[in-house]
Design a protein around this nucleic acid. Structure first.
Length: 599
DNA sequence: CTAGGGTTAG
């Protein structure tokens, strides 16, 4: 190894000497760095090293070949520093490196990954001007960019144009990108059709093709279809699944509570010598947390640590969210702190979960403190964060503060989404400002926001609660006119509104309409209707309703049960009803002492 | 020296 002085002497040129002296970390490490640029590029793991190397390269006389620069850009792109990579590309142009097709394709890819596909097309224009013929890599990057920006129609147009004008024959990667786009919008059927088309065109689908569609099917709860495709891939195409394919299937199974099958899959993958990785474990952690099974989630984390897989930010976020959902904020904070100690930096998702937890616990002060902490760390609240906070403020009745926050959200350039809108409407209704909610609704008018059954459910519920049954009825007709499909909630809030006004006949006819419309009542509907019957001393249907509930395997909630008990205690209902009621007591209430003194 | 698939929050 050369020492520092020897190296400087060896290099000789002034500019390099000055540069080296100004660089604090100069050492033998850099000497070897010079001797073989390629091997150094290979070892690039952080942006800083890459930038230094670029600087060093650009000061050389003569300049290293464009290939070396491309290699460096590739490395920077691989660590996802797209905008730095673009900067370097511009510098290459500026210092006169003769950029080629590779450089161009990297630049285009970076634009696209930065959600600047438009700029990507501008660079494509440069290609034409410099008579660099774009290849499948370049078109593929552009397609991916369009899909990334949800411009699926434009992607489709580009794809078709490539075929029609014979600009390039779509290959498996391009098909996969198109399939990803279709899946992103839930077009599973068309995605499969495209898979068939590529087979027809003799472009063999790959494991990526199958995994993309399998994942999408799992997300849409079509697990059995996913397995059909999985078997096709395995037995007809003889393509072996990998950890990604397994993880998608396992996530799908867990998410829908099919734990036994999930553990069978886990075993199967281990038998195939495919080890679960962080994402596989995190899928398990997340599903357990969402079901409130935090102990199991913690156990998974312990297993993964034992097996040498470090939980990452997503793993911890799932766990934190699990504790927040259970309202165990002290535990959530503990995980948050331990995560920070492990050097993991909390992100917007972490904070949003905590915020949600505090809001649900009606601890607005802590939530506000959390927002301050997150902005203090340079994180900008996003729509989800604002929505969470808005909901929290409305929940504790702080409508003015909510409005102020809504204005701030606007000022910060965050565009309210359909959830924001629902939260505003619900918040206003819950705080006795139904008129305000309705005028907001009318202000929004015929926009897509109002073609939402949930919006109608909120307003009908709001109107019904404040004795405006006529408005509720109008809203119901309005939604039918729009071609929207009423759901269980819609009928239930209508029934609730009718009952509140003592309009039992109308409640009854809505209830009966549910079954006809293929939207059978659930246990909430039964409870609401039964409470309405009892409160209005309208006992004709009660026994029949209870029997139906029993047949459907539903149970009564605590409120409805205690109302029944009151009615029996005061002699309004006959004690013979007790036997039937006993069958409808939910298991978790059986040990409740308050319900022991029935007899 | 380039390309495509799986994770978290309202």
């Amino acid at each position: 190894m050369m020492n520092r002085t020897a190296f400087i002497k060896f290099r000789g040129t002034n500019s390099f000497l000055l540069h080296s002296l100004s660089s604090f970390q100069f050492s033998t490490h850099k000497a070897s760095l010079h001797s073989n640029v390629s091997s150094l590029i290979h070892k690039i793991t952080n942006l800083n090293d890459a930038m230094k190397l670029f600087d060093e390269m650009s000061h050389r006389q003569p300049l290293p070949s464009v290939v070396k620069f491309n290699q460096l850009l590739t490395a920077v792109t691989k660590i996802k520093h797209f905008s730095s990579s673009l900067d370097l590309f511009k510098q290459m142009c500026a210092i006169g490196v003769p950029v080629d097709k590779y450089s161009m394709s990297i630049a285009i890819k970076c634009c696209c990954q930065l959600y600047r596909t438009k700029d990507g097309f501008a660079v494509l224009g440069c290609c034409f001007r410099r008579s660099i013929a774009p290849d499948e890599f370049i078109y593929s990057a552009l397609l991916d960019g369009l899909v990334l920006e949800d411009k699926i129609l434009e992607a489709e147009m580009l794809f078709k144009k490539l075929v029609k004008q014979k600009l390039c024959e779509p290959n498996v990667v391009m098909y996969n990108t198109m399939i990803k786009g279709l899946c992103k919008f839930g077009n599973n059927v068309i995605a499969v059709a495209l898979l068939r088309l590529m087979e027809q065109k003799n472009c063999q689908p790959s494991i990526v093709t199958y995994s993309t569609i399998i994942d999408s099917l799992c997300k849409d709860k079509l697990i059995d279809d996913a397995f059909k495709l999985f078997k096709e891939m395995l037995f007809e195409k003889r393509i072996l699944p990998d950890v990604i394919t397994y993880t998608s299937l396992i996530r799908g199974l867990c998410k829908f509570g099919r734990w036994d099958e999930a553990s069978k899959m886990l075993k199967e993958m281990e038998d195939e010598n495919i080890s679960p990785n962080v994402k596989t474990f995190t899928a398990l952690v997340d599903a357990f947390c969402k079901e409130g099974k935090i102990e199991e989630a913690e156990a998974v984390i312990n297993i993964m640590i034992e097996r040498g897989e470090a939980p990452d930010i997503v793993t911890y976020n799932s766990l934190i969210d699990g504790y927040c959902l259970r309202g165990e904020m002290i535990k959530a904070r503990e995980i948050f702190d331990s995560m920070t100690l492990r050097g993991l930096v909390p992100n917007v998702v972490t904070y949003s979960s905590l915020l949600n937890g505090y809001c649900k616990n009606r601890n607005i002060e802590e939530a506000m403190q959390m927002i301050r902490q997150m902005t203090g760390q340079g994180l900008k609240p996003n729509v989800v964060t604002y929505n969470t906070m808005l909901q929290g403020l409305f929940q504790v009745g702080r409508c003015v503060a909510a409005r102020r926050l809504f204005n701030e959200m606007h000022a910060q350039g965050r565009i309210p989404d359909r959830c924001t809108y629902r939260i505003l409407l619900e918040g206003l209704c819950k705080n006795r400002q139904v008129e305000e909610a309705l005028s907001l609704f009318h202000l929004v008018g015929d926009s897509k926001l109002n073609s939402d059954i949930v919006v109608y459910n909120i307003l009908i519920n709001g109107a019904g609660k404040y004795g405006k049954v006529d408005i509720a009825k109008n809203l119901f007709h309005d939604l039918i006119d729009k071609g929207l499909q009423p759901d269980v909630h819609t009928y239930t809030v209508m029934i609730s509104g009718f009952c509140r006004e003592g309009l039992l006949a109308e409640a009854r006819s809505s209830f009966l309409k549910m079954e006809e419309s293929g939207c059978p009542p659930n246990n909430v509907t039964y409870s609401v209707f039964l409470q309405g019957c009892l409160k209005n001393k309208h006992y004709d249907d009660v026994e029949m309703l209870l029997q139906e509930m029993d047949h459907r395997g539903y149970s009564l909630d605590a409120t409805t049960l205690s109302l029944f008990i009151d009615h029996i205690a005061t002699g309004l209902l006959d004690r013979s009803m007790l036997e039937l009621l006993g069958k409808l007591v939910p298991k978790e209430l059986l040990n409740d002492p308050s319900l022991c003194d029935w007899e």
